[in-house]
Write a protein that binds this DNA or RNA. Structure first.
Length: 638
RNA sequence: GGGCCCGUAGCUCAGCCAGGAUAGAGCGCCGGCCUUCUAAGCCGGUGGUCCGGGGUUCAAAUCCCCGCGGGCCCGCCA
C-alpha cells in the first residue's frame, strides 16, 4: 500500500510518541498542514495531548527524524519543514512502484449493492435524475477502486398509479409507436403529462358544474387556466395526439380506468401485464440511451412488478401482520414504530435522527393493492440476497428520508437486523431550478438529454474556435462538464440548476481538468518525439531528488501527489466523491501555475528534467485516476 | 406544529464531521501575459458583520443551545 504522506507522518508520530509518552494515535491526530510560511507540517501540541511546556523536548526528538530538516516551536505549534529531497524520493518511489494503482487504497473487501437512478418510467430523465446518476456512478466507481465488489442496480417502478396513467393515455391514443423523430421516453413523457392534465381538468370541470362558493370557483378557474396553458404547450409539440386524447377522454371514466389498470397489473392479468410491460419497456429503452451516454451503467434491472407477482411482497405483508407492532391505522393494517423508537440504541443503530417521528407504515390499501415502501422491503431483501451483499446503498434524494427510515425499521421488525443496519440511504439534495418548479406531471421538466445536447453544442463551438471541431470530443467534453458540475458539490447541498453553472467550461470545471490532463499528456508526447526517455522506471534511475529544494511550485506539487491516497481514503470513508473532485481542481490549479513558469522539456539538466517528467507523470496519473472515479474518461488531446 | 438539509466575497462554491496561527478558490469587475511543452491557461488587483444572538474552550466559520431566512418531507403517491 503506497501512502507516502501517511508513512512520513507515522514515522514522525512514532518519534514524538516515544519521546513524551503519548499514544501514537493521539499524536497523529495532532498533525495539521499549516500555511506554507509555517512549514510543511505542524504539530498542534494541545491537540496531541502534549503540554506546550514540553515543546522543546518534542522539537529535539522530531529533529532526529530523517524526514524533518528543520523545526521551530511557535507557541503551541511545532512547525516542521521536510527534507525535500528525501520526501521527493519517497513520493516518486511510491508512485513508480504502485504504477497504475497509485492513489487508490484498498479496503477490506465488502460486497456492496448500489441502487441508483431508478426514475419513474413515465417521462424522460431530468436534471434531478442526472445528479443521482452522477453521484451513483462516482460512488460505485470509488467503492470499486477501494477494493469492494460492487453491483449496480436500477429499480423499475412499474407498479402504481403513475404508470397506470401513462398506460391509459397510450391506450386511448391507440398506438405504441413514437412519431418519427421522437425519442420514446420523450414522447411517453408528453403523453403522460397530457393524460394527467386532462384527468385533472375533468375533475375540475366536474367540481365546477356543482354549486360551489365564489371563492372556490375562482380558485378552480385559476387552476384550469394553468392546466390549459400546460396542455397548450404539449399540444404545440404533439397536436394530433393531444386532440385525440381530448376526444377520447370524454368517452371514459379515467379515474376508474387507472385504478382498474393498476389493480389488474398487480393481479397479473395477462393482457394488461403484456401491455403495461410494453409501454414501460419503451420508456426504459429511452432511459438506456441517455444513461449510456451519461456513463451510468447497471448490472441488473429489477422490475418492481416481479416482486408483486412472485408473492414476495405478500409474504412481507403477512409477516409484518403477525408482528407485535401491528396496529390499525385509519382502518387499514399498519406497523407502529413508536415504541421501538423510544429505544435510543435502536435509533442509533438504524441511523434515525433523534427527534424524528416516524409515522406508521401502512401495509396495504383498503382495496388490497400494495404500497411502495412495503414493496421496497421485499426489494431490499432481494438486493441483499441476490448478491449476498454486506451493504446496500440506495442513492435517493433527501425527500425520501422518512420512507427510507421506515424501510430500515420494518426490516428490523422482521428480524433482519443486519440488513437494517447495513442499508444506507445515500441522500442528496435535489436540483432546483431558479425560475420555475419542475413538474413531470405537467410536462415541465428540463431533460438530461437537452442538457447534454446543449453541453455538446457549446463544447463543439469551443473546439471550432480552436480550429479542430470534432463531434466525438465535443460529446465527451460536454457530458463530462455536466457530470462534474453535478458531482463536485457536496451531496447535501442543493444544486441550483443554471446553464451557466452546469455548462461552465472555465476553471472549476471538467473541461478545465480535461484540458490540464491533455497538457500533461502533451508534454510527455512531445518529449518522446524528441527522443527523451519518459518511462517512469527509467526516469527514476537518473532523476534528481533535490529538484524541488528551491522551487515552491515543484515542492507543492510533490506534496499534492503524496496527498491523493489520503484524500481517497477520506472520500471513501465519507462516501463523498466530491472530495476527489475538489482535490483534482487544486492539483490542476497548481500544475497550471507551474506549467507556465517552469518548462519541462527545455530543462537542460538531465536529472532535473527527469524529475520534472516524473512529476508530470504523477500529476497526469492523479488527474486521470480522480477523473475516472468521477466517471470521466480523460482525453489525450483537446 | 415536528423533522432533515442548507446559509461563508455581488454570484457559484471549498473549508465544518476529527476546533488551532492574518478565512480560500472560481465567475464577475479592473490591469497585464501567446516567435518558447495546448491562452478551456498564467500573473496581479478588486471584493468577507463566515445569517444573528448566546454558550463551551487557552482557542469557534468549525462543537452546543436559541432565533432568523431558504429548500424538502410529515399521503390508503412514488
Amino acid at each position: 500500500m503506497h501512502r507516502p504522506w501517511r508513512s512520513v507522518l507515522e514515522e514522525i508520530a512514532r518519534v514524538v510518541s516515544s519521546s513524551v509518552g503519548i499514544e501514537f494515535e493521539k499524536v497523529l491526530k495532532g498533525f495539521d498542514v499549516p500555511k506554507e510560511s509555517f512549514g510543511d507540517l505542524t504539530l498542534v501540541l494541545p491537540r496531541a495531548g502534549i503540554d506546550p511546556s514540553k515543546g522543546e523536548e518534542v522539537r529535539k526528538a522530531v529533529e532526529g527524524c530523517s524526514y524533518v530538516a528543520k523545526s521551530e516551536l511557535v507557541g503551541i505549534y511545532l512547525n516542521m519543514w521536510f527534507d525535500r529531497a528525501r520526501f521527493v524520493e519517497k513520493v516518486f518511489r511510491s508512485f513508480v512502484e504502485a504504477g497504475n494503482s497509485y492513489g487508490v487504497v484498498r479496503f477490506p473487501s465488502r460486497r456492496i449493492v448500489v441502487e441508483y437512478v431508478s426514475a419513474n418510467p413515465v417521462h424522460p430523465l431530468h436534471v434531478g435524475a442526472a445528479r443521482n446518476a452522477a453521484l451513483g456512478q462516482a460512488l460505485a466507481n470509488m467503492l470499486e477502486a477501494a477494493g469492494h465488489v460492487v453491483q449496480r442496480r436500477f429499480y423499475i417502478n412499474d407498479v402504481g398509479r403513475q404508470v397506470a396513467i401513462l398506460v391509459l393515455g397510450i391506450k386511448l391514443l391507440g398506438e405504441l409507436e413514437p412519431p418519427h423523430g421522437w425519442k420514446p421516453d420523450h414522447w411517453l413523457g408528453m403523453v403522460y403529462a397530457a393524460t394527467n392534465i386532462l384527468m385533472e381538468l375533468k375533475k375540475v370541470r366536474e367540481e365546477l358544474s356543482q354549486v360551489v362558493s365564489d371563492e372556490r370557483r375562482k380558485e378552480l378557474i385559476d387552476r384550469m387556466d394553468k392546466l390549459l396553458a400546460d396542455l397548450a404547450r404539449i399540444r404545440e409539440a404533439l397536436p394530433d395526439a393531444v386532440d385525440k386524447l381530448i376526444d377520447a377522454m370524454d368517452r371514459v371514466d379515467p379515474e376508474r380506468e387507472v385504478v382498474e389498470i393498476a389493480r389488474k397489473y398487480e393481479a397479473g392479468d395477462p393482457e394488461v401485464k403484456d401491455f403495461v410491460r410494453k409501454v414501460v419497456e419503451l420508456c426504459i429503452q429511452g432511459f438506456k440511451q441517455t444513461l449510456d451516454r451519461f456513463g451510468a451503467r447497471f448490472d441488473v434491472w429489477d422490475w418492481e412488478s416481479d416482486l408483486v407477482w412472485s408473492s414476495e411482497v405478500s409474504k412481507i405483508v403477512e409477516q409484518l401482520s403477525r408482528s407485535p407492532y401491528r396496529t390499525l391505522y385509519k382502518g387499514v393494517p399498519a406497523i407502529d414504530f413508536s415504541t421501538l423508537l423510544k429505544d435510543p440504541n435502536i435509533r442509533e443503530k438504524l441511523r434515525i435522527p433523534k427527534g424524528l417521528e416516524v409515522p406508521p407504515l401502512i401495509l396495504m390499501r383498503s382495496d388490497e393493492t400494495t404500497l411502495y415502501t412495503v414493496r421496497d422491503i421485499a426489494y431490499t431483501l432481494k438486493k441483499f440476497r441476490d448478491f449476498n451483499a454486506d451493504t446496500v446503498i440506495n442513492v435517493i434524494a433527501s425527500e425520501q428520508l422518512l420512507p427510507q427510515a421506515q424501510l430500515r425499521l420494518a426490516l428490523y421488525v422482521l428480524g433482519y437486523r443486519k440488513e437494517a443496519e447495513n442499508l444506507i440511504h445515500y441522500s442528496y439534495e435535489m436540483v432546483q431550478l431558479s425560475g420555475f418548479r419542475m413538474s413531470s406531471r405537467r410536462g415541465r421538466i428540463v431533460t438530461l438529454d437537452e442538457v447534454l445536447d446543449e453541453a455538446k453544442t457549446r463544447a463543439y463551438a469551443e473546439l471550432e474556435k480552436r480550429g479542430n471541431p470534432n463531434e466525438e470530443i465535443a460529446e465527451r467534453i460536454g457530458v463530462a462538464a455536466v457530470k462534474f458540475a453535478l458531482v463536485s458539490v457536496s451531496p447535501n447541498r442543493p444544486v441550483r440548476f443554471s446553464w451557466e453553472n452546469v455548462l461552465n467550461f472555465e476553471r472549476n470545471s471538467a473541461p478545465y481538468l480535461l484540458y490540464t490532463y491533455a497538457r500533461t499528456r502533451g508534454i510527455l508526447r512531445k518529449a518522446e518525439e524528441l527522443g527523451i526517455a519518459t518511462e517512469p522506471r527509467k526516469l527514476l534511475e537518473i532523476y534528481d531528488p533535490s529538484f524541488a529544494n528551491d522551487n515552491a511550485r515543484r515542492w507543492r506539487l510533490v506534496k499534492m501527489i503524496a496527498e491523493l491516497p489520503e484524500t481517497f481514503v477520506r472520500a471513501v470513508e465519507n462516501l463523498d466523491p466530491s472530495m476527489l473532485a475538489i482535490y483534482a481542481l487544486k492539483l490542476a490549479d497548481e500544475f497550471n501555475s507551474w506549467y507556465d513558469e517552469d518548462p519541462v522539456i527545455r530543462e537542460s539538466n538531465e536529472g532535473v528534467r527527469a524529475s520534472k517528467l516524473l512529476l508530470v507523470h504523477a500529476v497526469s496519473h492523479c488527474l486521470a485516476t480522480t477523473l475516472r472515479i468521477l466517471g470521466i474518461e480523460p482525453l489525450e488531446r483537446m
